[in-house]
Design a protein around this nucleic acid. Structure first.
Length: 288
DNA sequence: AGCCAGGAATCAC
DNA sequence: GTGATTCATGGC
């Protein structure tokens, strides 16, 4: 591999590659060494590395970088400002931000994000990765990167149209297998149009996604945040619930209470703050 | 061995 | 409407 000549090289602040890829928002990455990864996303593939505040891309083209990866890594956003705001919305958030969460919100493909987060329910990140990988290997297409490395694309709804409950179980999807079948059916029959969701307001978009079996509020919000850039949503899983109870409530709180609190206090940056809290909670093993 | 995982469907009340 | 139980699988 020619590591002297990246296709793209950029100085960028408030960005940690490892944190960004391994924080549980995406699942198709492979660590090569410290701060060097293969990343698959939709039908695309990339090698990316970081040294200090320099990010480098390999196995891609200038054109693909401009039309895809810049947006994927949300590279044009000033995360210094985001963190500054996050630290000032509430006294407790200062500590969370001082914990150096240099996570960027990836802008991912809606279909891949939807299926990945259906799989995610009641699973740990490493296991989600396994199942998503199994599905790509079984039903995606084999492709070759710019520098001749083989990888698997994420299968489209069409490519999954013949896949049964049983077949998804062979990929270790378990009880989520029928949910995946339902997602494929609703997309293929046009009952849900993932492109149309882009234009809907967030409430309507959420209720569209929740028509799919196995998609509740939390998974819908993950898709809205990670694929549609709806930064006002606040996906509330077990970790977020625990950390919110500990930092802001000092008691048990319902999901609804937490959402209301996030809306009032975090506003349009709730999604970023959610990622910071998730990182903080997991790293400090809150509630474990 | 038993517990739990970036939850949601289902049933009980 | 809320609360407990169940779901498939793997890792600690």
């Amino acid at each position: 591999m020619n590591h002297e000549n990246p296709v793209y090289k950029k100085e960028i602040n408030d960005f940690d590659l490892e944190q960004t890829l391994e924080c549980g928002q995406c699942f198709r990455f492979e660590k090569i060494e410290e701060q060097r990864y293969y990343v698959s996303a939709g039908e695309k593939f990339l090698e990316v590395s970081q040294k200090e505040n320099i990010i480098e891309f390999y196995h891609t083209t200038q054109e693909e970088i401009e039309e895809y990866w810049i947006q994927y890594f949300d590279m044009k956003r000033d995360y210094g400002k985001i963190k500054q705001n996050a630290g000032s919305v509430h006294p407790v958030m200062k500590e969370v931000v001082q914990y150096k969460p240099n996570i960027r919100l990836l802008r991912q493909d809606p279909w891949e994000t939807l299926l990945s987060f259906i799989i995610s329910q009641n699973k740990r990140i490493s296991h989600i990765q396994q199942v998503v990988g199994n599905i790509c290997k079984a039903y995606g297409r084999q492709a070759v990167s710019q520098e001749g490395l083989q990888y698997w694309t994420f299968p489209t709804a069409e490519e999954l149209s013949w896949v049964t409950d049983e077949e998804f179980r062979k990929c270790k999807a378990g009880f989520r297998a029928p949910y995946l079948v339902d997602a494929c059916n609703k997309i293929l029959q046009g009952e849900i149009d993932l492109e149309a969701v882009e234009k809907m307001d967030t409430q309507e978009a959420r209720s569209q996604l929740m028509k799919i079996k196995g998609v509740g509020e939390k998974i819908a919000d993950c898709v809205l945040l990670f694929a549609y850039g709806r930064y006002e949503v606040f996906p509330t899983d077990v970790w977020i619930k625990r950390i919110m109870e500990q930092l802001f409530f000092n008691r048990r709180a319902s999901i609804q209470e937490i959402h209301e609190f996030a809306e009032e206090n975090f506003g349009g940056e709730a999604g970023f703050i959610q990622q910071y809290l998730f990182y903080y909670a997991k790293d400090k093993k809150i509630g474990k």
